[in-house]
């Protein structure tokens, strides 16, 4: 599984309140959520990104509220992956569960600037910054999580448990 896109650069401690503000938390539809993605972090976010682009962020991305509409709005806005130095745990879990690919690579984050083109080998554990001709590795997900990702989220896991 290979993902390719241009970098949108974000800072540290980007919390879920600014990714998807409380005033939109009653929404459940992906397309509607997408319209408010990152609204309180960067009002021009949606103008700056294209389908498949990759958010590259510093430490503790997605901290705060457990609202799953935060990663859902990112996925629905067309973001292909998020690479961060580290993620808050509920955001991490939610992303895996809904099939938003996310990766921890401090080296890649340090070396990447807005607009750089990245290529991620999801199960191979490699990220290439094509613009800067650099390659970084990340620890691939444990097999259990790989299965969930391959199935496109937790739904596949549920279906399997229900079969047993």
């Amino acid at each position: 599984m290979i993902l390719k896109g241009k970098t949108y650069r974000a800072g540290e401690n980007v919390n879920t309140d600014v990714i998807l503000p409380g005033r939109w938390c009653h929404l459940t539809d992906g397309a509607e959520l997408a319209r408010h993605c990152m609204e309180d972090y960067d009002a021009d976010f949606l103008k700056k990104i294209k389908r498949g682009d990759i958010i590259v962020a510093d430490d503790n991305f997605g901290c705060g509220s457990s609202r799953e509409v935060a990663p859902l709005s990112i996925k629905s806005a067309g973001i292909g992956a998020v690479v961060a130095k580290s993620f808050a745990r509920i955001f991490f879990r939610n992303s895996i569960n809904i099939g938003l690919p996310i990766f921890e690579s401090p080296e890649c984050v340090n070396a990447s600037k807005a607009g750089d083109e990245l290529e991620i080998d999801v199960f191979g554990g490699k990220i290439k910054n094509i613009t800067r001709k650099k390659e970084f590795s990340f620890v691939p997900f444990p097999p259990f999580m790989q299965t969930i990702i391959e199935k496109g989220g937790l739904k596949g896991w549920v279906m399997e448990r229900l079969k047993d």
């Binding site: 457990s66 509920i90 879990r93 809904i98 259990f144 937790l154 229900l162």
Partner: peptide
Amino acid sequence: TGVGSTDIAAAWATGEVW
């Protein structure tokens, strides 16, 4: 522990969580 809505739906369906 706090989880997301998909985890909750999965637990309602299976009685379990990872």
